Structures are given as C-alpha cells and as structure tokens.
Computed example of a mutant assay.
Amino acid sequence: MNDTPVLAAGCVLWRRSPVDGDLEVCLVHRPKYDDWSHPKGKLKRDEDAADGALREVAEETGYPAALGSELSTVHYYANGRPKEVRYWAGEAGEGHFTPNHEVDRILWLPPSQARERLTQPRDAELVNELLTSLHNTQ
C-alpha cells in the first residue's frame, strides 16, 4: 500500500457578481464523481503548489485567478491513498467556461448557497475561511 500522499492544489474561486456586486463563489461539477467541489487537481512533478492551483483553476473553469490568502490544507483518502490539497483564496479574472471531460458545469453562487451545494463538508469549511480572509483584508 502506498502511503505517500497525492499532492494537489486548488482555489476557492470568487468574484463580485456582475449583476449586484455581491460575493460569488465558483463551484465545479465533475461528471466522473457527480460531485460539486472547488477547482483543484494533482500537481505535476516538481510543480510549485501555488502554480499548480492557478493552472488547475484555469483548466477547470476557464478563469484566471489572482491568489490571495492561503487557506487550509485538506487531508483525506481518495481511492485508498492519502491526498493532500493546498487551497488559496483566488479572485477570478475575466474568463469563459467551456465544458470538458473533467468539468461539465460551473456555478457562481452566493457563499451560503455554495456551502449547501458542495458535496463534501470539508469544502464548505473552506468557504467560511474565504469569507474570513476577505473580511480581514478589506
């Protein structure tokens, strides 16, 4: 059994709503798992975690991100192996989502709705961390 963690990174991607200026969080739907989560993915060999987070967000959502505060690192088991995902707050830039085999839909939701839609409770905690980090930097 391999106990070396799979290293991954991602963002709690946010923006100000183009309609009313309220905060929105981007969630991605992965058809392979039929779940809603934050954009994230495995790091390439020797890839810096922050660089990997930015790459994965752009690949999965079509939006570039500007990294903000680092949020919690999440640890869990996936397919029998430990997984370690580092997260950052990421402010979305101008972009456009195109469905692909990994992510077929994205949603921009107010934080309260994002927390309810997320499949894993650990992902909802990251929304709370995002709000705290944004509140502390305003």
Rank of each mutant, 00 (worst) to 15 (best):
M1V: 08
M1K: 08
N2K: 12
D3Q: 13
D3L: 14
T4Y: 10
T4L: 09
P5F: 09
P5G: 08
V6Y: 06
L7T: 08
L7E: 11
A8P: 06
G10W: 00
G10I: 06
G10K: 05
C11T: 15
L13A: 15
R16K: 13
R16M: 03
S17Y: 01
P18R: 02
V19E: 13
V19Q: 14
G21H: 03
G21V: 09
G21E: 10
G21P: 04
G21R: 12
D22R: 15
V25G: 04
C26W: 03
L27I: 10
H29L: 06
R30C: 05
P31H: 12
W36S: 05
S37P: 01
S37A: 14
P39H: 07
G41D: 03
K42T: 14
K42V: 14
D46K: 15
A49N: 02
A50P: 12
D51R: 13
D51G: 14
A53E: 11
L54P: 00
R55Q: 09
E56Q: 15
E56I: 07
E56T: 12
V57W: 05
V57R: 05
A58I: 05
E59Y: 09
T61K: 11
Y63G: 08
P64D: 14
A65W: 10
A66H: 11
L67S: 11
L67H: 09
L67A: 13
G68L: 01
E70W: 03
S72H: 06
T73W: 08
T73E: 15
V74W: 02
H75T: 13
H75D: 14
A78S: 12
R81Q: 11
R81H: 13
R81N: 04
K83L: 12
V85L: 07
V85Q: 02
V85T: 15
R86K: 13
Y87F: 15
Y87H: 03
A89D: 02
G90N: 01
E94L: 08
E94F: 05
G95H: 09
G95I: 06
H96K: 14
H96M: 07
F97A: 01
F97K: 04
T98R: 10
N100M: 00
E102W: 11
D104T: 14
R105G: 05
I106E: 06
L107F: 07
L109K: 12
L109R: 15
L109M: 12
L109E: 11
P110N: 04
P111L: 01
S112C: 00
E116T: 06
R117N: 01
T119F: 04
T119G: 05
Q120W: 11
P121M: 05
P121S: 02
R122P: 04
D123T: 02
D123E: 08
E125N: 10
V127I: 11
V127W: 02
V127G: 06
L131P: 00
L131Q: 10
S133Y: 02
L134E: 01
L134R: 01
H135N: 10
H135P: 00
H135E: 05
